[in-house]
Design a protein around this nucleic acid. Structure first.
Length: 288
DNA sequence: GTTACGACCTGCGAGC
DNA sequence: TGCTCGCAGGTCGTAA
């Protein structure tokens, strides 16, 4: 499942392969992949062809390719999206949704998405703080911990003002971006916090530690090319990352905790799963 | 204004 | 063997 480290791996690959190149043809094979482009797939193709990609950018899990006309090709991988750079004669992938070729006759860009939660859209770039230009749909997304302008104080103050569970808070992309279910569980395990801990009870020290661990785990995952459980997450060359071998919490139900040896448990959380150590991450008193 | 929750979607594995 | 059902989960719209 692509979270911040996985998206950053893809961004770096795309930056290397497509920046400076001009799109010649675009084919949309599944209209749902361009559902966020309100003018429809025909307009999407028309506006993309002939445009040169000037840079590849990211905030949290959103990625966008700046074009030479003050617009950007905004891309979200959703749960199963991949952006691959393939030879022109490569067999089309089973779930190929969008394909772009370039005027230089080199490798093509494929957007592949099994579950179609991801997609692409062309959006106008709007000026924001620090002289940065963001696509309109990305403006409400908070900076992520790997962003040089990320403000730790804003996160620490913000999370302690909320009235919700700590895991819900760190999954809230308007508070801090880039964290998904996997890195949320890993950050909470490292911080010895239960996912249901009320945010108003977090001490300043706990919030600071949580942020430190979230930053740490995503930095480590990035260094290893991201986390992968199957062929659903790969870099632009179709290769998987190695961080799944380092996970301490996510997907480890009934396995011994790497810290205390207690058997890890899996619990229902907001229509998905949460993994924790019952001893290291004790249930908050108000919930027990 | 803030929080919670369901819908969207497809492939896979378990159970019958 | 073949069918049904539950599960995986990021984002958005809507309800409370």
């Amino acid at each position: 499942m692509p979270e911040l480290p996985e998206v950053e791996v893809v961004r770096r690959g795309l930056d290397k392969w497509v920046t400076g190149r001009t799109i010649e043809t675009t084919k949309v094979s599944h209209s749902r992949a361009t559902r966020n482009h309100v003018a429809g797939p025909k307009d999407f193709v028309k506006r993309l062809n002939g445009r040169t990609i000037t840079s590849v950018n990211r905030r949290g899990k959103f990625m966008w390719l700046n074009l030479d006309d003050d617009h950007a090709l905004v891309t979200h991988l959703g749960m199963s999206g991949q952006v691959l750079v393939q030879p022109l004669d490569a067999e089309p992938e089973k779930h190929l949704r969008i394909r772009c070729t370039f005027t230089d006759g080199g490798r093509a860009m494929h957007f592949v998405d099994q579950r179609t939660f991801g997609g692409m859209a062309i959006e106008e770039l709007v000026a924001t703080d620090h002289g940065q230009y963001l696509p309109e749909p990305v403006q409400h997304i908070a900076r992520d911990p790997l962003d040089p302008h990320f403000d730790p104080e804003s996160f620490i103050g913000g999370i302690r003002k909320k009235r919700t569970q700590v895991k819900r808070a760190i999954l809230d992309q308007t508070l801090i971006s880039g964290i998904g279910n996997i890195y949320a569980d890993e950050s909470l395990w490292r911080s010895k916090l239960h996912w249901a801990m009320p945010t108003e009870r977090l001490t300043r020290a706990q919030a600071t530690e949580l942020l430190r661990h979230a930053t740490e785990v995503m930095t480590e995952a990035l260094a290893q090319g991201g986390t992968s459980f199957d062929a659903l997450y790969v870099n632009v060359n179709g290769e998987s990352g190695y961080f799944s071998r380092e996970l301490n919490a996510y997907g480890r139900e009934d396995e011994p905790c790497d810290r205390c040896g207690s058997l890890m448990v899996r619990e229902a959380f907001a229509n998905r799963s949460s993994f924790r150590c019952p001893k290291c991450q004790r249930t908050p008193r108000t919930l027990s």
